[in-house]
Nucleic acid binder design. Structure first.
Length: 731
DNA sequence: AGCACGCCGACT
DNA sequence: GTCGGCGTGCTC
């Protein structure tokens, strides 16, 4: 690969560039410079300079030598990407049908990481020297530096209570001198023995099992524990074990859950904050963490899915918390599932991976049942609090009068809770006031002009909003078709409408809406979450964002306004998603106060998802769902791929069908759920169409797709593939 | 004519 | 992913 031939021929190497080209390119190595596989380099590509990594495999000698360009820069200080990481990049590229360069791009996402950090300069007393004239300000500064310690300039000025110009004056007279300060480490070393916690008997058993997994090399464990059962405490013990063995650890959290609260819990256990990695981290910090991870200075990273591609020096454990969460899936660029790829990374580098959830994904449950994963159960709340009682309200018999949405039984329970000083939560996963507006006179329905979804009325903003593409218009006074006035009616409820109903029926309660679209942004949301936490609201009406994150200690009652919502979707995972969401939401009830209550308003009280929730019988849900999937050939028993066709065409079934026929004619081995099916309704954004292919396990779906990708439009032009396949069988 | 936009191929 | 080239259609 690196001939230093006698006849002084120039060396050539493979270089992978972070661009959507199908393979590694070939470059010349400048004379006298050493590169090896993994070395990070800068190379010319077309009209620009890009980062890249020297890659494995023979460089292509067949390329016209006149075309070959030379590596412009070698990043000698940055350590080469390790063989395991390079294999991981290749694996992910192969799996996702994405160009390997696009996966490498996720590894090289911090440009700052490669440059040396500009040294931090500080000041120190030049021993013995005194200023020409003493002033009170100068005296204060000199008192601080007397001991010979070095200070950052602004820090010293602040500590002395003087302005920076005083320091500058002293520097001028050489009373102070400039010195280099050591670089700030991105995170201190966590101490596995900082604050050992008292574990319950069950927790201890699980933690012993997890610690033992380190001796097995590759292993995956699933912690299946109810909300409040202490999953976190238990997997912290696995992190302690990794640290004791001198290994690095990575905790992956869904983006939403990266809360200060979680970081504080880590700090309490290990005595220091972990390094963080997610989209909000500043470029400078990002560079420090990247370098720290590569050098081994950073021992534990807590991050969102992209942290999986960090160049760890010696990674020995990955934890995927809330492993069922959809936020682990990336839909754009390289469409990967961080949960699945974490398992792959653990497999390649032979270390344990831990998946944790109160409501595991069906895939993980199946893998556990078939013995591919070790399964650990934490069935009880560590505080001893009871799980809430959940009952259905049959809306056919116990429902409210026409035009109202809350059943009398639910309202009674809310009033009782209010009288006892406890909080209630009404959950409805629908923003706005009403999901459909129509004209009573002519039947006109307000539809989005871009994507044909119904427009949702947002009464506080006085707008009609499309929840698909974000398009909005002012709420008109008159019908745009027949010009009738006062004829527009709102159909169905959203959170705003439920809040209106609560305010009119229980006016003495302090009500609060928690919905992502309310004005004030993330700041206001944080404040309001805090208000709820402190008991400053009696009745909270919320969309799905109340399911995650904050705990509400005074919440006793949870009412699901429409428990059927989401069950009748075209989405093949509708049941699973609804089960997980409702289990989380009802789990908010009575976590600390005990005796929590859950109500499910439904027209289908016999539905297996709702029955499982009421009976507190998760197993019943998984059993029913697994059977249904086996019959339908859905994951994890079949394999599913979505072909996404995007383009500027206006939505039209004809154009879509034409594209489909050109790209992926139906095959006897695969089921194509085309535009006519509900599958399309699942994600019909602007300029985007998706169809689902479902193939049996033994069918080589990737080869099939690869074939049609070659025949059809270029993969990076209008056509994208998203695979929803559990990789467990392919390791 | 001047340009904005979309499409398409090339990039070693 | 990003650039440059080229065709189409619209505006000053």
């Amino acid at each position: 690969m690196f001939p230093t031939s006698e006849n002084q021929r120039e060396t050539i190497v493979s270089v992978l560039v972070p661009v959507a080209v199908p393979m590694a390119y070939t470059y010349k190595v400048p004379a006298g410079l050493h590169v090896e596989p993994g070395t990070i380099v800068q190379v010319p590509l077309g009209p620009r300079q890009v980062l890249g990594a020297v890659w494995d495999g023979e460089p292509d000698a067949a390329i016209n030598p006149k075309k070959l360009k030379t590596i412009t820069r070698v990043f000698e200080q940055a350590r080469p990407l390790q063989p395991d990481l390079r294999r991981f990049v290749e694996w992910v590229a192969n799996w996702t049908l994405a160009p390997p360069g696009m996966v490498l791009r996720m590894v090289l996402r911090s440009e700052e990481a490669l440059e040396d950090e500009p040294p931090i300069t500080g000041v120190r007393w030049a021993e013995g020297r005194q200023p020409d004239r003493q002033t009170p300000a100068r005296k204060k500064v000199l008192a601080l530096v007397e001991d010979g310690m070095a200070w950052p300039k602004s820090g010293l000025a602040q500590a002395a209570g003087v302005s920076v110009s005083v320091i500058d004056g002293l520097l001028q007279q050489d009373v102070l001198q400039q010195v280099q300060l050591p670089a700030v480490p991105p995170a201190a070393k966590p101490d596995p023995n900082f604050a050992k916690v008292q574990l319950t008997l069950t927790q201890k058993e699980v933690s012993d099992g997890l610690r033992a997994a380190f001796d097995k090399g590759t292993s995956v464990s699933l912690i299946d524990g109810v909300t409040g059962s202490g999953k976190t405490e238990v997997y912290f013990e696995a992190i302690a074990e990794a640290l004791e063995r001198g290994k690095q650890a990575l905790i992956l959290l869904p983006e939403i859950a990266l809360t200060a609260q979680f970081l504080r819990r880590f700090e309490q256990r290990f005595g220091t904050l972990p390094a963080e990695w997610h989209s909000e981290i500043t470029p400078k910090k990002r560079g420090r963490v990247w370098r720290g991870v590569a050098s081994g200075d950073v021992r534990v990273v807590i991050g969102a899915r992209s942290a999986l591609f960090l160049p760890f020096d010696d990674l020995g454990l990955i934890i995927v918390d809330e492993e069922h969460d959809a936020a682990f899936k990336q839909d754009d660029r390289v469409p990967y599932s961080a949960r699945d790829m974490a398992v792959v990374r653990g497999h390649i580098s032979r270390f344990p991976v831990i998946l944790a959830s109160a409501t595991p994904s069906v895939e993980s449950r199946v893998n556990a049942e078939y013995g591919r994963y070790a399964r650990y159960l934490l069935p009880e709340r560590a505080s001893g609090a009871e799980m809430p009682q959940i009952r259905a309200i049959d809306m056919r018999r116990e429902g409210p009068e026409r035009g109202r949405w809350l059943a009398p039984g639910l309202l009674e329970a809310m009033k009782t809770a209010l009288a006892d000083g406890a909080q209630s939560l009404l959950f409805l996963n629908r923003r706005g006031y009403a999901p459909l507006t129509l004209c009573r006179t002519c039947g006109h329905r307000f539809q989005c002009r871009h994507c044909s979804a119904w427009l949702v009325e947002h009464r506080f903003q006085g707008r009609l909003v499309c929840h698909h593409c974000g398009h909005f218009e002012k709420m008109p006074e008159t019908c745009p078709t027949c010009s009738s006035t006062q004829s527009l009616v709102a159909c169905g409820p959203g959170v705003e409408r439920i809040a209106e109903e609560v305010q009119s029926l229980i006016p003495e309660a302090r009500t609060l809406i928690l919905s992502s679209d309310l004005p004030g942004g993330a700041e206001r949301m944080k404040r309001e979450m805090k208000l709820v936490e402190e008991g400053e609201a009696d009745i909270v009406i919320g969309t799905q964002l109340v399911a995650k994150g904050h705990n509400f200690p005074k919440m006793r009652l949870v009412g699901v306004v429409d428990a059927d919502l989401g069950l009748a979707h075209g989405d093949p995972r509708a049941s699973e998603k609804t089960f997980q969401l409702l289990a989380q939401v009802t789990g908010r009830a009575g976590r600390v106060t005990g005796g929590g209550l859950g109500f499910l308003q439904t027209y289908a009280p016999e539905h297996p998802v709702l029955k499982a929730l009421m009976d507190q019988d998760q197993d019943a849900f998984y059993k029913a769902e697994i059977e249904a999937r086996q019959v339908a050939g859905l994951p994890p028993f079949g394999r599913m791929a979505a072909l996404i066709i995007s383009g500027p065409d206006k939505p039209s079934a004809e154009g879509f069908a034409r594209a489909l026929a050109r790209v992926a004619p139906p095959d006897r081995a695969v089921t194509v759920l085309g535009p006519a099916e509900a599958a399309l309704a699942m994600v019909r954004g602007r300029h985007r169409y998706r169809l689902l292919l479902i193939a049996p396990r033994q069918f080589d779906l990737q080869a099939y797709l690869r074939h049609w990708l070659d025949v059809g439009p270029k993969p990076n032009r209008g056509l994208r593939v998203q695979l929803d396949i559990d990789p467990q069988h392919f390791l």
